[in-house]
Design a protein around this nucleic acid. Structure first.
Length: 193
DNA sequence: CTAAAGATAGACT
DNA sequence: GTCTATCTTTAGG
């Protein structure tokens, strides 16, 4: 039985969602029917009222989904090589989203190993650019509604209790004093840097 | 039209 | 631990 997180889950403060989405399952259905899934282990919160967010300067063509309805995917290309996956989530701000930084592979591990060209399971999805490669997520997934069972969605997962750790975000030059990066304590599948 | 910077990963010292 | 490839997006003339 699948338990997809409803839109109301994302209609809360971005920071709240970033924490609550930890331990949930990211599911990806490929065109050929292959199922890929993983437990979300690391996230970051971004919202338009702070300078580190892409949407801070206003709505542009790239960031448009962040201003739209919650529960949609926001995918962008960075550094000429990598994609990053975000889920739109906000309340009380004009735009905001949760960056998925890392997941723990569950289903479709063989496909991920092929896509990532490595058999080291701890190197498959432990970073924003890595997980999009492993899950075959590209700009085609831009705007996908993750509250509906389609090619990409997020479901509740059967995981035990865990502790959440908050730290400063990674790879940004502004608002680094905010502890808006969250990950599951003692989980090996988080990006280390 | 031209230029500069960026929510990274991987290779190299 | 440090350095660079690489190209989309965005700002400015």
């Amino acid at each position: 039985m699948k338990f997809i997180l409803p839109k109301s889950f994302y209609a809360r403060s971005t920071i709240q969602v970033a924490q609550d989405i930890l331990g949930k399952k990211l599911v990806r259905i490929l065109d050929n029917g292959t199922v890929l899934s993983g437990i979300i282990t690391e996230t970051e919160a971004y919202q338009s009222d702070e300078p580190a967010c892409h949407a801070h300067k206003g709505c542009t063509e790239r960031t448009a989904p962040l201003f739209g309805p919650v529960g949609h995917a926001y995918v962008y290309f960075i550094y000429g090589n990598y994609f990053c996956l975000n889920i739109v989530a906000k309340k009380g701000v004009t735009a905001g989203g949760v960056l998925i930084r890392a997941v723990e592979p569950v289903e479709g591990v063989e496909y991920m190993q092929h896509a990532r060209k490595t058999s080291n399971i701890k190197n498959l999805t432990t970073g924003p650019g890595k997980l999009t490669q492993a899950f075959n997520i590209t700009k085609n997934e831009q705007g996908t509604d993750v509250t509906q069972q389609g090619s990409l969605y997020i479901a509740r997962a059967d995981v035990g209790p865990f502790q959440i750790v908050a730290t400063p975000r990674i790879g940004i030059s502004q608002a680094v004093d905010k502890n808006w990066r969250f990950y599951i304590k003692n989980n090996q599948f988080v990006s280390k840097r």
